[in-house]
Nucleic acid binder design. Structure first.
Lengths: 210, 210, 210, 210
DNA sequence: GATGAATGAGGCTTCATTCAT
DNA sequence: CATGAATGAAGCCTCATTCAT
């Protein structure tokens, strides 16, 4: 493609992957100003490239912002998948997912802000790529729940889908609240601290009677 | 001297409450286009007033949109409060709140769209009124949970705040998924249908051992 | 149409017809800079309106420029039609048309510049309205030629269309040359001065043998 | 030190005359998009060279486009000159010029489009080289007309300049109309078909009485 | 109170041109 | 000589807001 360098061109020699630098800058700017108040020129600035360079890598502003969110989401999910592969006990898997969710977002506030305030936006108003990723994440959760049911450790009488909503919704809600908390000090409570409280409730909700 | 008409001026002679008509139009338009893509002129159109008239009732676009969301949120909460007053059993209260939440949003799709896609936005980027309302809603939930703990029907070992997050988060998540579902047919499942599934999980999660 | 004042709104009370003022300014600017180097902001300036006002009257830059050319062309043709109505002799009609063509453009250099340098452009690359007007002008010429053939004063053996091309082409060529002549003095020869020379040739070319 | 390769450098070993390939590509692109909408990168594409290479052969975009038009115009005139040298009768010369004009453009539609829609533009807004070529073409015509007057076969009472305008203008007008005609079928009438009709009129207009 | 024509600041995007390789 | 990724200036257009009627 003339006038469009391959997205992965410089990835190998790690040197100056503008593509990635632009994506990172975009996440930063979106976190600060929100989707629709993010200016292309500011993203270019932070990525250390000229305004026009953005358009060598992305068709337009919306595609850039979408790509930034998608890309971050993608890496978020990939990490979860890898981590789960090493665990067997469904209850432990669930606990681990909760921890990864809270820790992953808790350690990257910008990313968390974007996920909690802009992701739904992009789902409703922009594109469909993110939607597939969300489905993938849900499938991951549902898979664990199903395993648990088959292993007899999770209640067989409840809808896996509903349980997944409860699990994800609870985590999501905690993160949102954390994001909206302005007080620096409160944030230091490291989001992942809440893992046990949440898991304690949801797990008991889904566990089969002893 | 331009004066801003009292918000309730025409409410009495129900005839032409432009204030409310503008707020309703705003919710509609936000639901369709999102917060930052909503044009003042379109809101004016739908409310059947001139562009300039908007500014007799609201200071600027952001205040109008905030007011629209706040007003809708306010009515949403007021209904919940009223309904709860008639119930005693904490478990029944929780079940009732879940139903009201799902039914209230399930029967006004526009409102639901705004709540699920724009409310966080406004919480993070705009003002603080909605934030207070959200706190109020959470307090309502927490109040019920605390009552339950005192009555010995809810586990005493868990954080009321965390439990509230799980409860609200689960409901919120269901609504979001419903919103993002394009298929007309699926929507007909009336959101409130899911009440029992959700409550079954969360309630068991928070209930004290029999 | 909301947000679009009727094009003829103020025409009656002659006062401040912005629509026309913008069109006139556009012709001026196009004559100076050419179609694609005309800036909307400069047209707005000369018309004494804000940049945004242009867009209350025209959909976009191209539509404005096209409208300017079309409008001028339209008035040019209307004048020719009126004048011809008073004349009977086909030869005299032809002579009159030549004079009007040369005098009309010779007295409005800006208009002439636009017609000779931009009209073909707009015919090929932009829209189709001008094309219809050009056809109309040709029909006017052809009508005169046909009358002359029927009256026996013009050669019956030649294609009216070809003759019309010769007549129009000759005039058009003279105007173009005049336009491209930079020397002020030469221009003072009043374009219409050439009427007789041209008519002498073309008329003899089309006249029936005595 | 970047050096500009001699325009004829590679012409000898006919192999890779980039200079000419760029000029040809330019004519193509201008014909399609018009002068100001032609992109350097598209011309480079079609010439099969990199964008930057253009600047090894031409100072800037305008010079390239001008050169393309000039070069094509030059070859057009050269052919006419050569052909005329073989003919003696002024009337026959005129007829021959008309044929060459119509046939030359009729067989290269792209070239014709550029001549009819962009040449005036470049004359008015760009440079002066083409202007000299146009003068040369006119001198060619005027020379023939003067010969004819001296030989007593053309009217002595008319301005050679005016007659030249009529001759050129008539041909030019036919070509323009042909260009603007979209219908493939009509074009197949081979522009040169019109030679006799045109010559019949103009020649009679300029011929001396028998 | 109500109107809606007018305003003009601000941002996305294009594309001619450069220069390190 | 040739490349093509990168640059950054420049301009069209939108739309929140004002104010004369």
């Amino acid at each position: 493609m003339k006038r469009r360098p391959a997205a992965t061109a410089n990835t190998v020699n790690g040197a100056s992957d503008k593509h990635q630098r632009i994506l990172d800058a975009a996440i930063e700017v979106i976190a600060e100003h929100g989707f629709f108040h993010s200016r292309v020129s500011e993203i270019a600035d932070r990525a250390g490239v000229a305004d026009g360079t953005i358009y060598l890598y992305f068709k337009n502003k919306d595609e850039l912002l979408m790509a930034a969110i998608d890309s971050a989401f993608h890496r978020f999910i990939a990490r979860a998948k890898t981590a789960l592969a090493e665990i067997n006990d469904p209850r432990e898997k669930l606990r681990r997912m909760a921890f990864l969710h809270l820790d992953g977002l808790g350690s990257k506030r910008n990313l968390a802000v974007v996920f909690q305030t802009e992701l739904r936006h992009s789902l409703k108003f922009l594109g469909h790529f993110s939607h597939n990723l969300l489905v993938e994440y849900f499938d991951l959760i549902k898979g664990v729940l199903r395993e648990g049911q088959e292993a007899g450790v999770f209640r067989a009488d409840l809808s896996v889908t509903m349980a997944a909503h409860c699990f994800f919704g609870s985590l999501d809600e905690i993160v949102t609240t954390w994001i909206l908390t302005d007080r620096e000090r409160d944030r230091e409570h490291h989001l992942s601290t809440f893992t046990d409280s949440i898991v304690s409730i949801v797990l008991k909700g889904v566990e089969a009677e002893a």
